[in-house]
């Protein structure tokens, strides 16, 4: 790092002679944050990397024994872990697809002349600001087979939403869709409002049909922002813990985060769970990388 290009001031000017140099200020402003994040995010991860090669259990006082790659080998060969991954994949696909359909649909509707548009948009955005844990809790009341309002409103009788192993994951996904469609809607609205009006006028003059207009004008222009929403929601859905953990405790709803939590804090397999955490970490960093690439791309526009 060189300081010669940092300041635009002439080094001989009066301003540069007073106070701290720009280099000092830059370091003073940036280094504490970086240091804080390294100490509280990176260092712990290095710490657990060490444990991931041991059979350490935090619940006992037995010293950790080095077992090499055994944890990783066991995890990658464990068919139950693979089932957790399959469940998570199913959950991510269903809930993100649902959010895109509902969210983008809502955005298309709101992109017209709607009375009280601002107020309606704000109200629609409310669900995504709420706590996932608390949302999961009160959806349990809504889903209750006997006195829940959902079965009553839909006339489903005693339909088991959360107790049925095949249905529970979808029930959680529905709640996630309710909560996060507004996010996709918000980003899509931004994308839609950025589409130049003259393109639509030109399409109208050319007598282009609504489908043609949508697929050739609207969608391509909104896609970059929609992709941001999709990648971000994929990443978040992949990490889901609160919602599913609160709403159901079936083997069919055991997402990766829940398995990891149980392994680490209920079964106290600290060493093995550290290894598991690393496998998850690599996947998340990969998705983050794609996400940031898209963010920067959109920013440059």
């Amino acid at each position: 790092m060189t300081d010669s290009v940092m300041t635009r001031l002439d080094p001989n000017s009066r301003a540069a002679a007073r106070g701290w140099s720009d280099l000092t200020i830059r370091n003073l402003f940036i280094i504490p944050t970086i240091a804080f994040l390294i100490i509280f995010n990176i260092f712990p991860l290095l710490y657990s990397l060490g444990y991931s090669f041991t059979d350490f259990r935090a619940s006992t006082n037995a010293p950790a024994k080095f077992i090499g790659l055994q944890n990783y080998r066991e995890l990658l060969n464990d068919e139950f872990i693979w089932r957790n991954f399959t469940i998570t994949a199913k959950y991510v696909i269903v809930s993100v697809a649902g959010q895109v359909i509902v969210g983008f649909g809502l955005a298309m509707l709101l992109n017209r002349d709607i009375p009280m548009k601002g107020l309606i948009t704000t109200l629609l955005l409310l669900p995504m600001m709420l706590s996932m844990a608390v949302v999961g809790l009160f959806w349990k009341l809504l889903y209750d087979p006997s006195f829940g309002i959902i079965n009553y409103a839909l006339g489903l009788g005693k339909f088991e939403w959360l107790a049925d192993p095949d249905m529970a994951l979808y029930a959680i996904a529905i709640t996630d869709i309710w909560m996060w469609s507004p996010f996709v809607m918000l980003l899509s609205l931004a994308g839609l409002s950025a589409v130049p009006k003259h393109l639509y006028e030109a399409a109208e003059i050319d007598r282009a049909g609504p489908f043609y207009t949508f697929f050739r004008i609207t969608l391509p222009l909104v896609l970059p922002i929609l992709m941001i929403a999709i990648i971000f929601r994929t990443m978040e859905a992949f990490k889901t813990f609160d919602l599913a953990y609160i709403m159901a405790s079936q083997p069919t709803t055991e997402l990766i985060s829940i398995r990891l939590y149980k392994m680490a804090f209920l079964e106290w397999q600290t060493g093995k769970s550290s290894a598991f955490a690393y496998i998850v970490l690599v996947m998340v960093v990969a998705i983050t990388n794609i996400y940031v690439k898209y963010l920067n791309k959109v920013k440059e526009r």
Binding site: N41, Y47, F241, T288, V292
Partner: peptide
């Protein structure tokens, strides 16, 4: 940014220890 994207449970294991 990547520190934000870490799943909480992943960070929580070493932090707890």
């Amino acid at each position: 940014l990547s520190t934000r994207m870490l799943p909480p449970v992943v960070v929580a294991i070493p932090m707890f220890l």
